[in-house]
Design a protein around this nucleic acid. Structure first.
Length: 803
RNA sequence: GCGGCUGUGGUGGAACGGCAUACACAGCGGACUUAAAAUCCGCCGGCGAAAGCUUGCGAGUUCAAAUCUCGCCAGCCGCACCA
């Protein structure tokens, strides 16, 4: 009898053995076929791992372990996205330096990850907060700056009037400060921006070059939000000045009965002297400043606005004078911050016009504009539109654009919803921006030799009164000399957003200890692109887009060899709390895996996290679940006592054996881990039904199990003396011919309803199956006295159509 | 609001447009045991008297729909300074 299955000693033993064998480290042999598997590196929070982390980690571990057995040189690295807000807030509260906090948190994460038996290449571990790492983050920023992709702009931040601190959107709850409940206002600051919009078209186009799951591509396309339309100039009445709008519907220009500008639009101040109701306008603008773009975009809220009295515009085609309104549903951040309102054919304009009794002029026939806006009108014909009358919408779009361009009052324009990236935070715990402001020379980049520009060691991390980070108080650090002229200069006190370090970390893994470059060209050439990147859907629009942008830039300047960073992108569903809600500290439903690992072992935990549901779907955590997988592993453990003397694979389990190899092999590739495990379970059930197992059957079973539950697989393999350690084994192949049984049962449908099941020879011709089906005793009653109109024979079903 | 997604037994889920409920969890029964646990073997969706009906609801396409299309209803995720 084998000993009882005790997970702790077994798992610790094999973790040590693998480490000593260096079997999970990527080789620098650039002649072998390579596989680069990547998962999103974690933010090392103070709470340690929660059960959501292991889902993608285990999945990619399964894939990478399989790839190694298939003979690939595998790079499966791990690191930490270590800069961030919670660590800094914790430091403000406790006075412990964020670097210290980060170090402690990383140590905990590392220990937890190692305990789970992941086959990470620990020799390549990185942290974005490490100066050796962020040196290159700063280097990339300087390259962006050098190529004109970094610029300063006036951008509002959330500012708590009570704490005197800049707040992240997340920290603003219902318009007030999350911490103190104080009033939050929008405060405009000059901040560094990155021109991601310059890459908008490439970021859309190159989605055709990569193998991302479709919903990721769709979400990226929608986020970038390309639209084709026109910019149109409206003359401000009684001036030579013009107000430019962007519209995707220039064809409806004759229906523009008023205009709306954003509360932040510069024309409000420009025409202050002429605005008769200035007090009302100023008040409205003040109120709008307290709302986020998100709140302002809420459609179901009542439309608000105020008209500019004394300032109006001229519709360039009807020549009519139309009013200009200010409303917060128009955002300064999209288009020109001004719109022409065509209430007959836009839902928001329609509601606004109804609220304020503005004229509604139908310009596309087909709807009923007395009831609602007619927006789905691509095939409608133009009316009330002068020279456009009678045209279809598409035709009218072209005609009006030609007209605008001919008359010089507008032009075709492609617009993107994508906005440039605000690349500055008024925070301490981030990468310093390596620029200084010289009185004489303006903004001057640090020379590469001065990188990394390290964060100064401080004791007090609280921000300053004006919303700057505490770096603004580190005078010794802040005041420096200009690298250009040697005169006095001041460093940038803002730091980079945490997205910076994560935008290129996959490059560093290829050559993590390189002092001379972010990675050597040889390493980049061999390892790139990442073959398979798995991450959460929540990162689809920000992180994934930001890192594609940086990569494309680095490609354009010759630093990286591929135009796209990731060949394949898949996404896992979130692990929700037991109540079905997203796990969060505030909801109090965070589950820590430690307890489960302790009680059931890492193998059982890993199996359950893969077995619990479809990988791409969100799933609530179930405390009971791990137990079932533990029971299964014990069932596998007991196979040791069932080994017989037979050789090879017995005929009695041959079909099942080969089917299992096929199913597990294919399902891992499709990330159908739950059904792969179900197949292994079924095979074990089949083995139990025979009462014994051969050594060859067991060895194969353990190899199939190894990606999911590597420790127990190694242990049984060793204890039963089945051969070399499994990490040195080859992934098994299956015999297609062994899969087919002599005869198969197929269903017979009459008019689409299953009425019978018949046995047919496995390789029977369609005609033969049809004959057997029609002759079946169970089928006869349904066909008697009726005409058989049609018989469809497919794979494992026959459908007989009778009438 | 905008964008993405989901809806199948008591529970988690399975099902290239082709026999709905694989594999598990829970439950029930049997064997073993003085007994219990563990283990092994088996049963196990609902409604209906039955024919049958039944994959959130309602239509459609098809020889055939959980799967495709449209419309509802319900829920989840993201929305640019959380990571």
């Amino acid at each position: 009898m084998s000993e009882r299955y005790e997970h702790d000693p077994i798992e610790l033993k094999w973790q040590k053995r693998w480490e000593e064998a260096h079997c999970n480290e990527a080789k620098t042999d650039y002649t072998k076929p390579k596989f680069y598997g990547l998962i999103e590196f974690p933010y090392p929070s103070g709470q340690g791992l929660h059960v959501g982390h292991p889902r993608p980690f285990t999945a990619m571990d399964v894939i990478c372990r399989k790839r190694r057995l298939e003979g690939y040189n595998v790079l499966f690295p791990m690191g930490y996205d270590a800069f961030g807000l919670p660590t800094e807030n914790y430091a403000i509260k406790t006075g412990i330096h964020p670097a210290k906090v980060t170090e402690t948190n990383i140590a905990r994460f590392r220990a937890q990850l190692k305990r789970l038996g992941y086959s990470f290449d620990w020799s390549r571990e990185i942290s974005t907060a490490d100066p050796e790492y962020y040196k290159w983050t700063q280097w990339i920023f300087l390259k962006l700056y050098e190529h004109g992709l970094a610029y300063k702009a006036e951008i509002p931040i959330n500012f708590c009037t009570s704490c005197k601190v800049g707040l992240a959107n997340e920290e603003v709850v219902d318009g007030v400060c999350e911490r103190c409940g104080g009033q939050v206002i929008q405060m405009v600051r000059s901040q560094w921006m990155l021109k991601i919009t310059e890459y908008a078209q490439k970021l859309i186009d190159d989605l055709d070059k990569v193998d991302y799951i479709e919903r990721v591509k769709t979400q990226q396309r929608n986020w970038i939000g390309r639209s084709e339309g026109a910019e149109v100039d409206f003359i401000i009445a009684n001036t030579d000045d013009k107000l430019t709008v962007y519209t995707t519907r220039p064809d409806t220009l004759f229906g523009a009965t008023y205009m709306v500008i954003s509360p932040e639009h510069p024309y409000i101040d420009k025409y202050k002297g002429r605005i008769a109701n200035w007090d009302a306008v100023a008040k409205y603008r003040e109120e709008a400043a307290h709302k986020s773009d998100f709140e302002r975009g809420e459609l179901n809220k009542e439309k608000t606005g105020v008209v500019l009295e004394g300032v109006s515009a001229i519709n360039p085609v009807t020549k009519k004078e139309i009013p200009i309104w200010v409303s917060d549903y128009v955002l300064m951040s999209y288009g020109t911050g001004a719109i022409m309102a065509v209430p007959a054919h836009d839902t928001r304009d329609y509601e606004f016009a109804k609220t304020f009794n503005l004229p509604i002029v139908e310009v596309v026939a087909g709807g009923d504009v007395s009831k609602e806006a007619y927006t789905e009108c691509e095939h409608g014909r133009m009316v009330n539109s002068g020279f456009l009358n009678g045209m279809e919408v598409a035709e009218a779009k072209k005609a009006i654009a030609d007209y605008l361009e001919k008359e010089g009052i507008g032009h075709r324009k492609v617009n993107y919803k994508l906005r440039d990236w605000v690349f500055a935070r008024q925070r301490y715990w981030g990468e310093p921006i390596p620029l200084v402001k010289c009185e004489k020379c303006g903004w001057v980049p640090l020379p590469e030799s001065e990188l990394p520009l390290k964060l100064p060691m401080l004791d007090d991390f609280s921000p300053t009164d004006d919303g700057s980070s505490c770096l603004a108080r580190a005078k010794d650090w802040l005041h420096t000399t200009c690298p250009h002229c040697g005169g006095p200069a001041v460093r940038e006190a803002d730091t980079m957003p945490n997205w910076a370090g994560s935008s290129w970390y996959f490059l560093r893994y290829t050559d993590p200890h390189n002092d001379n470059a972010l990675a050597s060209p040889e390493a980049l050439k061999y390892w790139l692109p990442v073959d398979w990147y798995n991450g959460g859907m929540e990162h689809t629009t920000l992180h994934l887009l930001y890192s594609r942008f940086w990569h494309k830039f680095l490609y354009d300047i010759g630093v990286v060899p591929t135009p796209e960073p990731y060949m394949k992108r898949t996404s896992h569903g979130m692990v929700l709390g037991e109540n079905g809600e997203k796990m969060s500290k505030s909801r109090g439903n965070v589950v820590n895996p430690d307890d489960y690992i302790k009680e059931y072992g890492a193998d059982a935990f890993r199996m359950y996290i893969m077995f619990m549901g479809a990988f791409d779907q969100p799933i609530p955590w179930n405390t009971q679940g791990t137990k079932g997988c533990r029971k299964f592993l014990e069932r596998v453990w007991r196979l040791q006592d069932m080994i017989n003397d037979a050789q090879g694979v017995r005929d009695s389990v041959k079909a099942s054996y080969h089917a299992t190899i096929k199913k597990v092999s294919e399902d891992i590739e499709r990330m159908k881990f739950n059904t792969a495990i179900a197949a292994i379970m079924s095979f074990v059930n089949d083995i139990y039904a025979t009462g014994s197992i051969t050594r060859d059957e067991l060895r194969t079973l353990l190899i199939l199990l190894f990606p999911f539950a590597p420790h127990i697989a190694e242990e049984i393999n060793e204890a039963a003396k089945l051969g070399s350690p499994i990490y040195e084994a080859h992934w098994p192949e299956y015999d297609e011919s062994a899969l087919v049984a002599d005869s198969v049962e197929i269903g017979v449908q009459i008019n689409g309803k299953v009425r019978a099941r018949i046995m047919v020879p496995a390789n029977a011709a369609k005609e033969e199956i049809e004959k057997l089906a029609l002759e079946s005793a169970d089928v006869k009653p349904f066909t008697e006295g009726k005409t058989v109109r049609k018989v469809i024979v497919v794979k494992n079903i026959v459908n007989i159509v009778v009438a």
